[in-house]
Nucleic acid binder design. Structure first.
Lengths: 187, 187
DNA sequence: TCTTGATATGCAACTAGTTTCATAGCATGA
DNA sequence: TCATGCTATGAAACTAGTTGCATATCAAGA
């Protein structure tokens, strides 16, 4: 039993890369880690409590002046061994929840007004992905200016980021195809 | 409240395209619909019961000789109006759960043996995606041999399938990049 | 004959994830 | 001064999704 769990492992990786508070983790899940694993702050706080109780992570209270205190978490030895065990297990297929694709097929059962509304939504959605792509590309130039001079961890982070960039570029090209197809229905 | 729900909507679209039993839906979710929305047969049977109770779908008992009876579901008027309402709501960002990406970043905290094991997993994973791509391409040639002569529903299904193909091609190219990067760490 | 596998449906128990609400200090700008 | 927004954590209630088990028919092959 157990085996796929998942959020725990993403948190362990993130804390090994850089210890931090629940709040900081939530922001990372909105940014870098969130590219391939999403989580709300509620879930993160809950899972961190459980991981602390199980001895996978340790917490340190940090007084901050001007701001509320925070609890900085770090990975403990048992957490690290949980992670390495998990790393050697077979990779599960990625799971996709692509609402837009469902809506596009659903548009066949709506009228012209509905398809026009969908078209506008696709354009908004495209703009969001364009913003995301630019953010990734800016991050790449900032964090990996000299790809020849990276250590192991940085090279692995870089190849994952390149995956995010390739994904966004693919999505943008596909959305152009979708827009053209939706326009073509009207003719 | 309510609004994102989701599996219900994917089932409504699938049943509008073609009425069918829970079992048949589960197979479609393993194949075509499953490209962008996954669900187990348990979840599908449970949601179908609820949708039937809410009057979104109607069921018809079908006797089959040689096989167990089945219940064929069709979308009823209230279900159709639920769907069109949902179609006009803003599209939620797709949610990605990409375990492999977490493991790649995690590999920075494992030893050479762990990275070698990951490399083998990435190769197996790549073979799976190659199979998926071939299945999509075969399906495309079978279902859309003449892209000029398609009705609205088929054009929309086709553009979603092209998205699946573009996704698989992008994944394969990225996995080659990952393999090269993992090999490069050993040198 | 016996096993395996496909068709076909479902309950029960569990785990994961979301939403709503609450609290509290300080900074910034209108 | 007042509203807004960011930092920071959390409880409670709910919804969604997974896993394990159970059942039954029939076909195909060992």
């Amino acid at each position: 039993m157990m085996a796929r769990v998942a959020l725990e492992h993403a948190i362990l990786v993130s804390l090994l890369e850089q210890p931090g508070s629940g709040y900081e983790l939530a922001r990372r899940f909105d940014r870098s880690i969130g590219r391939f694993w999403t989580a709300t702050h509620q879930q993160i706080y809950r899972v961190l409590k459980r991981m602390e109780a199980d001895g996978w992570v340790t917490a340190e209270e940090i007084d901050q002046d001007g701001r509320p205190d925070k609890r900085r978490y770090s990975v403990a030895a048992p957490g690290r061994s949980v992670l390495t065990t998990w790393l050697r297990e077979p990779v599960q297929p990625e799971s996709v929840r692509h609402e837009l694709a469902v809506k596009i097929r659903g548009a066949a059962f709506d009228d012209a007004a509905g398809r026009a509304a969908l078209l506008a939504e696709v354009e908004r959605y495209r703009a969001d992905h364009e913003t995301t792509l630019h953010r990734y590309q800016t991050g790449e130039q900032r964090d990996f200016p000299d790809p020849g001079a990276l250590d192991t961890g940085q090279r692995l982070q870089h190849v994952v980021l390149r995956g995010g960039i390739a994904y966004e570029q693919m999505v943008l090209a596909w959305l152009d195809d979708v827009l053209e197809t939706l326009h073509g229905l009207g003719r």
